[in-house]
Design a protein around this nucleic acid. Structure first.
Length: 720
DNA sequence: ATGATGATATTTTTT
DNA sequence: ATATCATCAT
């Protein structure tokens, strides 16, 4: 077999990794050094040069999207489908194992997956059951405690409270929550991993089977693995030397959700004969961008050490813009994107990155004003929308009547005369009998109930009885359509007056389409039943934006930018308190992670990089005066060019343009008008923009900088 | 049972 | 500022 198609497009270091002899290999791959490419080519190498069967390969990625892309790239390269190869996320693979071995894992056949939202709901209910005050025991704290423990591989019964009452209570919540999950046959995300680990750990026969099957384990983004994922990998590898691991300690940005960069070192310690290779040549960015990023990341004391270089020239300097305020910042970014496009580039080549999701709005508004198409990544995804979760609750309850979380959701939406009172009775019954809500309802319906309570309950029960008989015969999509129709959800949203009714109905229709597509695309080996469809919905929550416009500017958080690249990149809000975020500044480890996040953001840029910060910023309703981020000082001055803010000189404040001064804006307000504000006191209107509900005026008050106020939300009294 | 009002807490996110 | 959520009144 000729190796050239696989090795030809690679540099020497990449070649060395791809064609390395079989054995453990750790590839430390810097940003833009062709990390994924090495992984893809390695798999192609194994199949073509080492005559490895595709079904004996297991590859793990960080996201479903990455998994899909990897499979596609391999198939394109080999010119043939590679069925039998397992490619997926840790969660996806764990799920696959558990579905295949539900009996050995002691799970109900129709076990369901709980997303974080469902998990939080369940924790809240657990807290209520335990008579704990939510103010003293915040559900979110309990949630992160439970997930943190599970990520470390700890079960409640193995935890030591260390004579700490707080700790003891958290463990108790964990225990009771877990019992509830098991009774309802529900697994949260971390539980998938934990169960998959225990399955292989406790069942020597299964472990032997999978060890015999998977001769080659490949892992992408290894720096993002947590303790249980690493443990699972080691188990599956056994004492063989078959781990091919790719990662970059400088791009570890998920420590806050249990990822352990140390796994990189642990691997070298646990498997001393692991070969270490570095990919340090960067093919993405200009010399200035790389030099700046290198200097920044060098400020982190704890790194494995690695310096990226490029053959490219220095390119343009990095530009830092000091904006007057957050609006000026947005306008500046938009203006530069217009210039970029005027030079013949596409909008989609530009990305605006920010630390917090809340920052996207400013840019969306600014882009909308000048009619530039954009696309926001992240945010609420298809299967996370309320109406979709409602419909899914019906489907889940159909699949598994003991799913209490879904019962509670379905029973109260749409409102059908079953209120908190009735629900409380059901919960009480369920608690005393130790059964599910559905069983409690059945029992109560047989007993004596006041008609007013029994009637709606009976109707609800009958609805499901009918659905259950119906759906035995029907295919997935028809069942979904049937459920949506009989649940009354469409009518319910029709009546909603928040203006989202039509959207919601469309989404429900789209759910039917999705289920249709799911059936069509399902591989023959796995029948597409309701259970797998529901798992798919939770595990792969879908894209956030259904129909993106053509050639859009890309908006996303720094976190979701990882793995992507753009010719033109803006990082906005590079200010102390925002980036690095306030929550991280007094913890050295978290601060290092923020710096890595900045490094990730900077290394997304191929040709031009802008960092912007504002002198004043309105955040959470009040004005702040942030200092420029320390990260800006860590970039060598010779790589930077300061962009001058437009007309820094303060204009004569009390003299608005005479021609428009007479035009009334709204409610007796006009440019130059003196006004009274409830908190800021007396001021003068300087400028105006927008119309109707969005009409805003800029007002200068004594002692503070000029502010933009939405007329509709502000009580401005004209004074003479 | 349901809708309206007021207190509260606001990183990052995939699975 | 705003969205979410719990409590309260209808």
């Amino acid at each position: 077999m000729d190796a050239s198609p696989i090795l030809a497009p690679l540099n020497p270091a990449q070649c060395a990794a791809v064609s390395a002899p079989l054995g453990n290999l750790l590839v430390l791959a810097g940003a833009g050094s062709g990390k994924t490419r090495v992984l893809v080519h390695r798999i192609a190498w194994l199949i073509q040069m080492e005559q490895v069967a595709p079904w004996s390969i297991l590859a793990v990625t960080f996201t479903n999207k990455a998994a899909r892309e990897m499979r596609e790239r391999i198939e394109r390269m080999l010119g043939q489908p590679v069925g039998g190869m397992w490619v997926g996320t840790f969660h996806g693979l764990a799920h696959r194992l558990l579905r295949a071995h539900w009996q050995e894992a002691r799970l109900p056949k129709a076990f369901q997956i709980l997303d974080s939202d469902d998990q939080l709901r369940l924790i809240k209910r657990t807290l209520r059951d335990l008579n704990l005050d939510e103010a003293r025991w915040p559900p979110r704290k309990a949630q992160s405690f439970i997930n943190a423990q599970k990520d470390e591989g700890h079960r409640a019964q193995h935890l030591d409270d260390g004579d700490n009452p707080y700790q003891r209570k958290q463990i108790e919540i964990y225990r009771v929550y877990q019992e509830t999950c098991e009774r309802a046959g529900q697994l949260d995300f971390a539980e998938l991993l934990l169960r998959a680990h225990e399955l292989l750990r406790d069942r020597a026969d299964l472990l032997g089977h999978y060890q015999a099957r998977f001769h080659h384990l490949l892992v992408d983004e290894f720096q993002d693995t947590n303790a249980i994922q690493y443990a699972w990998l080691r188990l599956l590898a056994g004492d063989r030397e078959n781990l091919f691991v790719v990662g970059d300690d400088d791009q570890a940005i998920y420590g806050w959700r249990g990822a352990r960069v140390e796994n990189l070192q642990s691997l070298q310690r646990d498997r001393p004969n692991t070969r270490l290779l570095r990919l340090e040549q960067n093919y993405r960015s200009t010399g200035n961008i790389l030099g700046a990023a290198n200097a920044l990341i060098a400020c982190n004391p704890s790194r494995l050490g690695k310096t990226l270089w490029t053959q490219d020239g220095a390119g343009e300097p990095i530009r830092i813009y000091q904006a007057l305020n957050e609006l000026d910042e947005a306008h500046f970014v938009v203006e530069r994107i217009r210039r970029f496009v005027a030079e013949g580039r596409r909008h989609a080549e530009a990305a605006i990155l920010y630390r917090t999701t809340a920052q996207s709005r400013l840019f969306e508004e600014a882009l909308m004003q000048v009619r530039i198409p954009y696309r926001v990544y992240g945010g609420l995804r298809f299967f996370e929308r309320a109406e979709i979760k409602d419909a899914l609750a019906y489907l889940r309850l159909l699949a598994n009547p003991d799913d209490d979380a879904s019962f509670e959701r379905a029973v109260s939406i749409p409102p059908r005369g079953i209120g908190v009172r009735t629900l409380e009775t059901l919960r009480e019954q369920a608690r005393t009998q130790g059964c599910s809500l559905w069983q409690a309802m059945d029992a109560l319906l047989c007993g004596s109930l006041p008609t007013r309570t029994a009637r709606p309950l009976a109707v609800f029960a009958e609805l499901f009885r009918q659905l259950r008989t119906d759906c035995k015969e029907l295919d997935l999509a028809t069942v979904v359509a049937q459920v949506i129709k009989t649940s009354g959800l469409v009518e319910h949203y029709e009546k909603s007056k928040d203006g989202k009714g039509v959207d919601r109905q469309e989404n429900l229709t789209e759910l039917v389409n999705t289920s249709h597509r799911f059936s069509d695309e399902a591989p023959d080996e796995e029948p597409s039943d309701l259970d797998t469809f529901l798992a798919h919905a939770t595990l792969e929550a879908g894209e956030a934006q259904g129909n993106a416009p053509d050639d859009p500017v890309q908006l996303m958080t720094l976190h979701s930018a990882k793995g992507l690249e753009f010719p033109l990149v803006f990082i906005a809000g590079v200010e102390e308190g925002l980036f690095p975020h306030q929550m991280s500044v007094d913890n050295p480890q978290r601060l290092e992670e923020e710096r890595r996040l900045c490094y990730v953001g900077m290394t997304r840029a191929m040709q031009q990089l802008y960092l912007t910060h504002a002198d004043t910023r309105r955040l959470y309703g009040s004005e702040s005066y942030p200092r420029p981020s320390r990260f800006l000082r860590e970039i060598p001055a010779e790589r930077v060019e300061d962009v001058r803010a437009r007309s820094r000189a303060t204009r004569p404040v009390y003299r608005p343009r005479a021609a428009v001064a007479a035009v009334e804006i709204e409610g007796g307000l006009r440019l130059g008008q003196r006004v009274l504000h409830p908190t800021f006191g007396e001021g003068v209107i300087l400028d105006q923009e927008g119309q109707g509900a969005e009409a805003r005026v800029q007002v200068k008050f004594a002692g503070v900088s000029a502010k933009w106020l939405v007329i509709g939300y502000t009580n401005l009294q004209p004074i003479s």
